Structure formats: structure tokens, C-alpha cells
Amino acid sequence: MTSTILQLSDPFGQVACRESGQGEPLVLIHGVGMQSAAWAPQIEALSGSRHVIALDLPGHGGSDRIAARSELPVFLDWLLAVLDALQLPAVSLAGHSMGALIAGGFAVRHPERVARVALLNGVFRRDDVARNSVIARAEMIRAGAFDLDTPLKRWFGDTPIERAARDDVAAWLAAVDNDGYATAYDAFARGDALYADGYARITCPLLALTGGDDPNSTPAMSRAMARAAQRGTAEIIENHRHMVNLTAPDAVNAALQTWLETPIAQGEPT
């Protein structure tokens, strides 16, 4: 695996990514507060047959920030600039949490650049109570009230594999740039319905996967995303929560492998 720095034009600056393998490109986008290292089990498992590229979101890991209070469309513009810099006309695109919001919106806005899309622990049309709660958390983060324990308690149980994953996630959260975190979280809080109506226009294979015990990126949301798309499939990993790609890597990798082997329709990007 190699670490790469891409230099984009203004306003996006530098983007850090991890690359491994050869073949058809698979681009991975992590969630708020994480970094590309959070995809380690998927990079290891899938790079035997794909060119896997895991990106650091703006203001995360080694990537430069974008403007404060940038909304979800700016993150889509950022991803388009990254794919252009990598000279990738079309990719299989997988995102986790905030990364899933970006991937889903990108598939709506730029269908010609997406051969397949996978949405792990994604959010979709929150109800008013959930939306108000997450917006309130976004405002607290913006004000500098960074609470490490609350997301960890929400994301993890107490099994050995969850405790190990929790330690890694805690370290990534503790290291994140607060301004970058606040900007991404605000876009995450306000973007769950922005491209939802457009999912009906997604014609490529779509996988919506979450943990059966994820209280925020719920199984109902994944099933709704899959129903909305023309070729959608939902998969629920029971007895797991929000960081399912780390706590149930074998099950997630198997689901992603099946998704990657799903034929694309004639006329879709390759």
C-alpha cells in the first residue's frame, strides 16, 4: 500500500489517499472524524482484484480543509476534482456514514462517473426528531464542545472485536482537526435529504448496508435507499452497530465483493 498526496486546484488544496492493488478502480470515502486508515480491512481484502483508493476527507488525515460551513454539494465538487486529478473517468464508489452521503449524492449528480455505489451506514431522510438532534450536535461541535465518549458509546458494544475497533476509532477522533470535523459534521447533519429524491434516477448497482443495531444509520434507512434506487440491494449485518466495516469485516467484505461482481447495464460507465 502506498500513501499519495494529490494537489488539486483552489479551493481544495492537497488530498491524501492510500492506494493498493491493480485493476478496476474502487474509491472509498470514510465518515466524519475518521481517516482513510479506517478502511484497512477492506483495502486488504479487495485490493487483490481492484485498484483500491481510500481518500482522506477534507480536514481529516492528511487532506487540507475546505471553507468552513461548506455544505454537501461542496464535498461532491471536491470528489469530482479528486477523480479528475486521478484521471478516473468512472469508478465503483463506496462510502461510510458521511462518506455514504457523498457517494449517494455523487451518484445522483454525476451518474456518468459511477459504475457502482455502496452506502455503508448511510443516513436517509431522518425524521424531525433525529434531524434536530444531529443539528444540535453539529452546533456544539462548531462551538468547540467535542465529546469523544458519546459517539463511541453509540457506535460500539463490548465484544472483544468492538473494543479493539473502539480504540482505533478513539485515536482517529482524538487526532482530527476540529475545524475540519465541524465542517464535515455540519454537512452531514443537514444533508440527509438533499439528494434523496434523486435516488430514483440511480441506475447502477447500489448496495445499502448497515448494522442491525445502528440507532442512527438504521436498517429502515438502508432498506429505503435500496428501494428508491432502480437496482438497489439492502444488507443488514445483525448484532453490529455503526462501525460495521471494522467490527464485522468478513461479512462486509463479502457483501462488497458480491456488489463489485454485479454486472453493470449496457451503456453505464465502466
Results as ranks from 00 to 15, higher is better:
V129S: 15
F106Y: 11
D128H: 11
M140E: 12
A136T: 01
L120I: 14
N132C: 09
A103N: 06
L101I: 02
D128A: 15
V108L: 13
F124G: 08
F106R: 07
V134E: 11
H110L: 14
R126Q: 07
D127I: 14
V134P: 05
G105T: 14
V117C: 12
F106S: 02
R131S: 01
A136F: 05
I141Q: 07
A130F: 00
A136K: 06
R137Q: 09
M98L: 14
L101Q: 09
I135H: 03
R125C: 15
H110S: 12
A115D: 02
A136W: 05
I141V: 06
A138G: 08
G99E: 06
A100H: 05
E139N: 06
H96R: 02
D128C: 15
V114N: 01
R113D: 00
G105P: 11
V117Q: 09
F106I: 00
G144C: 13
A100Y: 10
S97E: 05
A143K: 13
D128S: 15
R126N: 08
S133D: 01
V134L: 08
I135N: 07
F106H: 04
V123N: 15
A103Q: 02
R125F: 14
A118N: 07
N121H: 15
L119R: 03
A115T: 11
L101N: 00
S97I: 11
A118M: 14
G144W: 04
V129E: 15
S97P: 03
P111T: 04
E139D: 00
V129I: 13
G105R: 13
V114I: 11
A138D: 00
V123D: 06
A115V: 05
L119H: 01
A145K: 14
A130D: 02
E112R: 07
D128I: 11
R109I: 12
M98P: 11
F124D: 09
V108E: 04
F124L: 07
L120P: 02
G122R: 10
R113S: 00
R116P: 00
M98W: 03
I102Y: 02
A143H: 08
R126V: 01
F124R: 13
A103I: 12
H96A: 03
G99F: 02
A138E: 01
D127G: 15
